[in-house]
C-alpha cells in the first residue's frame, strides 16, 4: 500500500539528495533532474548507489540488514566486518519511522493493490483496484520483502521498482525501493526472520533531505 503511493508522488515531487563520491570522499548534490540525466546517459545509477562490498565494522550478525535512509544505502552485513551496500530510494518525507523489525515474508513479482484513496482519485490506479499482477510495470518490481514487527505486518516493504533512476532520491512514500537486479540479489541472500534495523537519522525523521 505504501509502495503504491510511490507511483503518484514520484511524478509530483522533485526531491533533492546527495551522492557520495568514494574517490574524493565528498558528498555532491543530487536531484531529480541530475538523476534522470545520469541514468539516461549511463544506463545505470551513479557509482555510489550501485551494489558493492564495503568495509562495515559492526557488532551485528552477518545477515542483518541496516537501512540508512538519510544516505540512501541499505547494508547487508557480511562476515569479516564487511557489508554488501545497495543504493535505495526512500519516501519524499523520509522513511517515517525507525527501529528494529524483521523480514516477515517475501514475494517474487508481487501483486500490487492500490490503496482505496488512490483508486478514488486516480483513474490509472482504479483499473487495478482488485490488484495489479506482478510484472515489469508493477510498482513493487521484481521482489518484495515484507517488514514485520513481531508477527504484525508494518505495511512497509523493501521492494523493486520499474523506475531504476529514482534510486538515491526521496520520492516514494515510506517504502524502501531498490533496482530490480538489486532486490533480486538481496532476496536471494536473506532469510525470512532476518533482523532489519532502520536508522533514525535524516529521512527517518519525517523531514526528507
Amino acid at each position: 500500500m505504501a509502495a503504491g503511493l510511490a507511483v503518484s508522488v514520484s511524478i509530483a515531487f522533485a526531491a533533492g539528495t546527495q551522492v557520495y563520491n568514494p574517490q574524493t570522499r565528498q558528498w555532491i548534490d543530487y536531484d531529480r533532474t541530475k538523476a534522470y540525466k545520469y541514468y539516461k546517459l549511463h544506463k545505470q545509477v551513479p557509482e555510489s548507489f550501485r551494489k558493492q562490498v564495503v568495509k562495515f565494522r559492526t557488532a551485528e550478525r552477518p545477515g542483518t540488514i541496516i537501512i540508512d535512509g538519510n544516505q540512501h544505502f541499505l547494508y547487508l552485513v557480511q562476515p569479516g566486518q564487511q557489508a554488501i551496500r545497495y543504493g535505495i530510494g526512500v519516501g519524499r518525507d523520509g522513511f517515517g519511522w525507525a527501529g528494529i523489525v524483521r523480514i516477515g515474508r517475501t514475494a517474487e513479482w508481487p501483486t500490487w493493490t492500490p490503496p482505496s484513496e488512490m483508486v478514488a482519485r486516480d483513474t490509472k490506479a482504479a483499473k487495478w483496484a482488485n490488484g495489479m499482477p506482478g510484472g515489469p510495470d508493477n510498482p513493487l518490481g521484481a521482489r518484495a520483502l515484507y517488514l514485520y514487527e513481531g508477527d504484525n505486518d508494518t505495511i512497509y516493504r523493501i521492494h523493486g521498482t520499474p523506475e531504476p533512476w529514482t534510486i538515491g532520491l526521496d520520492v516514494s512514500s515510506g517504502c524502501i525501493r531498490m533496482n530490480n537486479d538489486d532486490i533480486v540479489d538481496l532476496h536471494s541472500r536473506i532469510e525470512v526472520g532476518a533482523k532489519v534495523i532502520v536508522l533514525m537519522q535524516g529521512a527517518a525523521l519525517y523531514k526528507g533531505v
Binding site: I66, G99, L199, M200
Partner: peptide, 17 residues
C-alpha cells in the same frame, strides 16, 4: 531508540565518514 539502532547508526556514520 533501542541501543542496536543507536550503535548501527554509529557503524553507518563511520562507514561513510
Amino acid at each position: 531508540m533501542p541501543e542496536d539502532v543507536g550503535m548501527a547508526a554509529v557503524d553507518a556514520a563511520e562507514a561513510t565518514d
